[in-house]
Design a protein around this nucleic acid. Sequence first.
DNA 1: CCAGACGTTGTT
DNA 2: GTCTGG
DNA 3: CCAGACGTTGTT
DNA 4: GTCTGG
Length: 216
Amino acid sequence: MCGRFALGIPRRQLEEHFAAEVPEVPPRINVAPSQPVLAIRLEHGRRVGRLLRWGLIPYWAKDEKIGWKTINARAESAAAMPAFRDSLRRRRCLVPADGFYEWDKSRKPREPHLFSLADASPMALAGLWDRWRPLDGGEAVESCTILTCPANALVARHHDRMPVILPPSAWAAWLDPATAPGALPALLKTCPAGQMAERLADIRINSPDFEPGAPG
DNA sequence: CCAGACGTTGTT
DNA sequence: GTCTGG
DNA sequence: CCAGACGTTGTT
DNA sequence: GTCTGG
């Protein structure tokens, strides 16, 4: 699954890598659910990075609590889920990351591992977003979720699910709302069967800077 | 019809 | 908003 | 995901 | 154990 990840890529490198306009974001080694995450989406045909709350709140929600249970969406079922299907059809995004964490729970204390690409290039996690307007007329909240798929062999040593990682060749079609829904499953299957999965590196974290309870 | 859910992961 | 269960 | 809390009364 | 907050 994907419940924590890292993002410390400098702005200009993100802009170059994703061909997008990206806001300045402080480097984070421990991005947690409910916090703002950088998501790249298409606005008027241009790729733009926005800070969206992690945990998708569907536009029809009565309150925002559902966002605690929607930090991930299963790629296999999202198209059929009331909370995700509209976003899957029309509101897809990329979530840049240095890598994502999985925990080794056989250790005391639990030990985090960072999974990043072997060549250290930025990862593009497949995401969905939505815009929710509070019933009391308060300000709209934009939020997002990260799709998951079955873990590849490397990640499976720790967990049976992992985030969908999209290769650069899939980004344009993923972001384009005009992409036919029928084409999406093929894009999502990029991970774990595709080449990116082969390039995942498993790095054990021993840094004293990493404190799960104190999101950086 | 109305009421209530709408989600994922992990663990047992 | 839309579907399921009662 | 992890960390941290884990309560009551009364009123709307 | 289970829920909430970050």
